[in-house]
Nucleic acid binder design. Structure first.
Lengths: 259, 259
DNA sequence: TCATATGATTTGTAGGACAATTGTTGACTC
DNA sequence: GAGTCAACAATTGTCCTACAAATCATATGA
């Protein structure tokens, strides 16, 4: 309706940015998430499609005008969305050629959004495995570092989160405290590169753990493992901390294997 | 010159996107890197300033019109640049408020560009230390995984890179082979999250190692350490691989300490 | 004192125009 | 027939203007 030039008789076939089209025959663009901007929605939609594999690496994407038409937004909005995906190295572009999907290796996999898209894509089981294995590499060492270098303030935060976990009455509440616990440890590790990594891991797991329902018995056991980690850090025992984390991860592996 | 509205008598004071202003009094925008787009240059410039600390977290940035004026580019270009920085979580924006710098913890530190900006910022020594420590966490385990899971093709690539390193006659050539070697190992680890991480580490180190000049004796020693790693992977010895990598990292630590 | 309107500022979106780049095609020459 | 070069066309890049939407600040009134 707003594209002035190519308003031919052909069916427009605009895709909604969200699966909830408005019933009325009114304005077509009102079907996007309220509170999010158009360019963000478009970036989300295109990014998800790329990660999902709709456009394999090397493939040329539809041009900007085409995207504008399919989403019924302006070319400016499309361009801003594409720039966001460029910033994540999901695609590049050149005049006359168009935009193409970059090879997987150049993707910024360690990015919140890309990770989220990945976590909802078909091959999320292998992804979950990668994340969990990644934790085995990172977390024992990070926790050992935390045991060596934590300040008293950082320790207080870790302990508080641990206590909060034990006192949690609902699952989301517990998950939140759990996340806080692990992030506090990474912060205490004193390596600024570990913090963003932890954020990513936690966010990925949050996406993937919604399915896992734990039993009360299981929760009690996990709580004990967490407390062992807290204690090791508190007593400045790096080796004990490392081992405690390994036990916790082994427990998580088991839980995952059961699903 | 192209801003039609606010061409008052006041000094415009446009900042060049690059420190090489053209001597002539001609067009002002010709001072950017040839071959790079305007929005990319602007994103680079603003991103660098943020990471450098010109605008601390929480600070409100100049508004889009102001950036357009200072760089003598259109508001559209500025917006695209800002969208790229948004995609890296360096800033957010809301109407009427403006754009503000996000807290450091939300920055996408594990991003090529952000890392590059970081590597050129004042506090790069601490950054180098973090990266190197990060390697100590990642690489031994990744290499052990590679020793377990490598395919023959991956092994061939690793061996080729190792040989190439030994045969290199110039320093850049050697560095390139070195990078190829480490990346091949990460690819062979079979964890898709490790590859982008390795790319980042290597790119960060490339920025930081330009200063380090190594002596012939030193190089021979380092080559031996690399070959030990190659051998351990070839023979499927994860524990030996881990230890060999630790030795190499210790050697690198020494080199860094000497600077 | 509190709620409410209104006003101003900034980003968000749209749409049109042209420039720059470069792949493609076709003509021309050797 | 092969190769070279020029013209063309398609696509992104850049700029511009206008308005919409959001929201903070201020003033106004109950």
């Amino acid at each position: 309706m707003r594209s002035g030039k190519s308003m031919k008789a052909e069916a427009v076939e605009a895709e909604a940015l969200l699966p909830a089209p408005n019933a009325g025959s009114g304005r077509a663009n009102s079907s996007r998430i309220v509170g999010t901007s158009v360019h963000a929605s478009v970036a989300n939609e295109i990014g998800q499609r790329i990660v999902r594999g709709d456009y394999p690496p090397g493939a040329i994407l539809p041009n900007e005008a085409k995207w504008a038409e399919t989403f019924e937004v302006s070319r400016s909005a499309v361009r801003e969305a594409i720039k966001m995906l460029m910033a994540k190295s999901l695609l590049s572009s050149r005049p006359k050629v168009g935009s193409w999907v970059e090879p997987r290796e150049r993707w910024n996999l360690l990015d919140r959004d890309v990770l989220t898209w990945y976590a909802t894509s078909p091959n999320r089981e292998t992804f979950l495995k990668s994340v969990q294995e990644f934790r085995h590499i990172i977390e024992p060492e990070a926790t050992a570092l935390a045991a060596l270098r934590r300040t008293d303030e950082q320790m207080a935060e870790i302990s508080a989160a641990c206590r909060e976990m034990g006192a949690a009455t609902s699952l989301p509440q517990r998950t939140q405290a759990d996340t806080r616990f692990h992030l506090a440890i990474l912060r205490a590790s004193g390596n600024e590169l570990l913090v963003p990594l932890g954020t990513l891991i936690e966010s990925a797991l949050a996406h993937l753990f919604v399915f896992v329902t734990r039993e009360a018995d299981d929760l009690r056991h996990a709580q004990g493992l967490h407390e062992a980690i807290e204690k090791a850090i508190r007593l400045h025992r790096p080796e004990a901390a490392r081992n405690a984390v390994r036990k916790l991860l082994a427990n998580t592996d088991e839980v995952i294997a059961r699903v």
